[in-house]
Structures are given as structure tokens and as C-alpha cells.
């Protein structure tokens, strides 16, 4: 019995290590569809597993996806022209809280997951440094188009996600518009405070 549980644990550790090993690598252009498919499958299988607590699932999911999401570019996109006016310290604190907001919002959506399937449709290179990955989420009632937008990072030529579009709605665009409207009447510190209350 004890032996069994040890071997089970070792198995778990091996699985975890192999997941980490895959994710430590950056995504290559030719592998985008394949890698994303495996990440998505991993996630949906994890979500279906009823033996794991939801909290543990989310930590594991972020381990899977953190290496492909470009949170710092997302922060810059969300603030638009305001970004350049900020000090390095302000940029840092915004990036931290906005990343948390994005993750929480994502977890919130995962919580709604029931038995949807995700299908990768195609990869389209729209520019030298832009790739779109088209996927379909087969929902309960309808099929939703979800597009992951990748850009080639200048730092190390990795392909990273800077925006996700669901049924034509760009997540980054909605944040950008919201922040712009908010900042037209209020200060940057107000925005940070507001985000803080929103992430509690």
C-alpha cells in the first residue's frame, strides 16, 4: 500500500517534471499549433479531473501557460499612450497588478468550465512578426471562435501571446478602452487603487 502510494507520487512528480520540461522551452514558429494543442489538452484534462482541488488546478495551468503569455507587452498595450508617461516604478507596479487581474479573470472563466472541447483550426502568419492561432471552443449552446495572437519577442525571438480574441472581442482592446476612459477623468494612482479593489 505504502509502496503503491510512493510509486504513485513518483509518477506524479515525473509527470510534473515532464510538463515543466516542455514549458521551459520557448515555442518555435513551426510548433505553435502542436504546442498549443498539447497545452490546451493538458488543461482540459486537468479541468475534467475531479480528484484535484480547483486551486491546485489553476497553479498547474499557469505553470503551463505562463511561458507563452507576454504579460509585460500586454500591460503596455492595455495602457496605450499613457504607458510612456509613467516612471519605471509605476510601470512595474502596474504590470504586477494587471497581470494578477488577467490571471484572476482567466481563473474565473476556467471555473465555468464544464465539458467544452477546444479544436485548433489553423495558424496564419499575418506579418513577419505576427501569428494568429485560430481555435474553436465547442460550448454547450454555440461554438465560439477564440484567436490567440502571437508576436515575435525582440528579446529572444520567442513567439509569445500578446492578445486573445473571443468571438471578435479583443481582450486587450477592451482593457485599453476602459483604461483610456478611466484615465480621461482620473489619475494613474486612482487606476492602481481601482485595480487593487478589483483583484481582492
Amino acid at each position: 500500500m505504502i509502496q503503491h502510494s510512493i510509486s504513485k507520487n513518483i509518477f506524479k512528480i515525473l509527470v510534473l517534471l515532464s510538463i515543466l520540461a516542455v514549458n521551459a522551452q520557448a515555442i518555435n514558429e513551426s510548433d505553435i499549433a502542436k504546442q498549443m494543442q498539447s497545452k490546451i489538452d493538458e488543461t482540459t484534462n486537468l479541468l475534467k479531473n475531479k480528484d484535484i482541488a480547483f486551486k491546485d488546478k489553476t497553479t498547474q495551468i499557469f505553470e503551463t501557460f505562463d511561458s507563452v503569455f507576454d504579460y509585460s507587452s500586454m500591460s503596455r498595450i492595455a495602457l496605450g499612450k499613457q504607458w510612456r508617461k509613467l516612471s519605471t516604478k509605476q510601470k512595474k507596479s502596474f504590470e504586477k497588478i494587471f497581470t494578477l487581474k488577467l490571471k484572476q479573470s482567466y481563473v474565473d472563466k476556467l471555473n465555468l468550465y464544464t465539458d467544452e472541447k477546444v479544436k485548433i483550426e489553423k495558424v496564419e502568419k499575418i506579418k513577419r512578426n505576427r501569428i494568429k492561432l485560430y481555435t474553436k471552443l465547442i460550448g454547450q449552446e454555440e461554438i465560439y471562435d477564440i484567436v490567440y495572437k502571437f508576436h515575435k519577442s525582440k528579446k529572444n525571438n520567442d513567439w509569445l501571446i500578446y492578445d486573445v480574441e473571443m468571438i471578435g472581442v479583443s481582450i486587450m482592446k477592451t482593457y485599453r478602452n476602459q483604461f483610456k476612459e478611466f484615465l480621461s477623468t482620473k489619475t494613474f494612482d486612482n487606476l492602481l487603487a481601482k485595480l487593487k479593489t478589483k483583484t481582492q
Binding site: 474565473d108 477592451t174 476602459q178 478611466f182 478589483k198
Partner: peptide, 8 residues
């Protein structure tokens, strides 16, 4: 869930 994403 969508409501939570909103600033306004």
C-alpha cells in the same frame, strides 16, 4: 464573470 472584468 464578465461583470468582474469591468472597471466601469
Amino acid at each position: 464573470s464578465i461583470k468582474k472584468d469591468a472597471i466601469d
